[in-house]
Amino acid sequence: MADKQISLPAKLINGGIAGLIGVTCVFPIDLAKTRLQNQQNGQRMYSSMSDCLIKTIRSEGYFGMYRGAAVNLTLVTPEKAIKLAANDFFRHQLSKDGQKLTLPKEMLAGCGAGTCQVIVTTPMEMLKIQLQDAGRIAAQKKILATQLSAQASAPTSVEAPAASRPTATQLTRDLLRNRGIAGLYKGLGATLLRDVPFSIVYFPLFANLDQLGRSASEEKSPFYVSFLAGCVAGSAAAVAVNPCDVVKTRLQSLQRGINEDTYSGFLDCARKIWQHEGPSAFLKGAYCRALVIAPLFGIAQVVYFLGIAESLLQLLQEPQA
């Protein structure tokens, strides 16, 4: 049976609603993931996700955990909308013969979805990472200043550098002025190498897990089956591509901590991580990323397949009494 035709506006609205709910729920974990991935050997500020969140709350307050959330909340609607709608579109195009999609075709549809989404994902991640990591850089400088003050023979203290609080608007303006549109798309190749394999793994795995919970008489799975399938498929795909996510995060970070490596490209970054931090460094933040992606895509699939947008559009189209 061919997939049920769903209007493009409904797909976009469903994707947007799912993204807003998901990001609001899991953003603090995503912040911890970014900071854990960016810290290098010899400059470790945090020992775990919980340690990172506790220190963030102590130094930056509760809302410090949501630094960069505004960027995500603004851009996650088009990002999730493009990703989900593109996958649906490619699946529909590839199943025009009425036959069930084969695994290679499911993977091809996922590849198309991952490729389309980087139009929004790359600048969104670029801005978000600067905002998320600013607190780590500021805390590191403060610790260094305290150490220098303690070691100084003179009684005068060394003041910690003032912590800069960049905004997304300032970052965007500076990047466009200094580097042009290419500044917002730094790390595009690494983003593609993360998001395309992610979608190739996620969408076929989700579709098959979701199918297992659907009886022959049902048109779609119960909501809890879609949620669990989204969680399992999302966490599996997230861990699978985590090495590329680590490299992408490092490449997109414009500011470095004290004595931290700089990178000229994807291969240079991967080589230095391997040489200086070992292969285990490519799994930094993997469990955080799994904890972020699992509920994010679980919520996304529930909203998408419950058809909340279809109900809203139907109400708007009903004639007024």
Rank of each mutant, 00 (worst) to 15 (best):
I258T: 07
I119P: 05
I129Y: 11
A109L: 03
S48C: 04
L316Y: 10
F63E: 13
Y287A: 14
D195K: 05
V239K: 13
A300Q: 14
I129L: 06
G257Q: 05
E218T: 12
V303A: 05
K100F: 14
G98E: 09
F203M: 01
F63I: 14
E159G: 07
A10N: 11
N178R: 12
V201A: 14
V76C: 12
L283F: 05
Q40E: 14
P204N: 01
G183S: 08
V247I: 14
L12K: 06
K96M: 13
F90Y: 10
D195V: 01
A237H: 00
L84C: 09
Y46I: 01
A216I: 13
T121D: 10
V26K: 09
L188A: 07
H92G: 13
N242R: 11
S47C: 10
Q99K: 15
I13R: 01
A160L: 04
F27N: 08
L312P: 03
Q275L: 11
V71H: 00
L209H: 01
I258W: 05
A85P: 05
K284T: 10
I6C: 05
Q211W: 10
K284E: 12
G180T: 01
T56N: 08
L127K: 03
V232E: 03
I82M: 11
I54W: 12
G265E: 02
N178L: 05
G187V: 04
N38W: 13
N14Q: 04
I129N: 09
Q140C: 07
Q39V: 07
D3A: 14
M126H: 14
L188E: 05
W274C: 08
I308F: 13
Q117C: 11
C116L: 15
I17A: 06
A190L: 00
D133C: 06
E219I: 11
T146G: 15
I143F: 09
A81P: 00
V158D: 00
A152V: 07
A294K: 01
F89Q: 10
L131V: 03
V246C: 06
G183W: 03
A286K: 08
V23R: 11
P197T: 07
G64R: 09
V303F: 01
T122Q: 03
Q39C: 06
L254E: 15
L20E: 12
P222Q: 08
Q255A: 13
A81F: 00
G307S: 01
E260V: 10
A270T: 00
A86N: 02
A162P: 04
C111Q: 04
L193G: 08
G68K: 12
A86L: 03
D97A: 13
G265L: 01
S47W: 09
R67L: 06
G213F: 00
E218P: 05
L176G: 00
R58Y: 06
G278A: 02
V118G: 01
N41T: 14
R256S: 12
R165I: 14
G285R: 07
G42M: 06
R256W: 10
L184D: 07
C231P: 00
F297N: 07
L75W: 00
P28G: 10
L31A: 10
L205N: 07
N208R: 15
E277C: 09
G15F: 03
P155T: 02
Q5L: 12
P222A: 06
K220L: 09
V292Q: 08
A138T: 08
A69Q: 15
G298K: 03
K11E: 12
K96A: 07
S47M: 08
V247T: 08
M49G: 11
T191A: 05
R250A: 09
G68E: 12
L209M: 04
R173Q: 15
I293Q: 11
L12N: 02
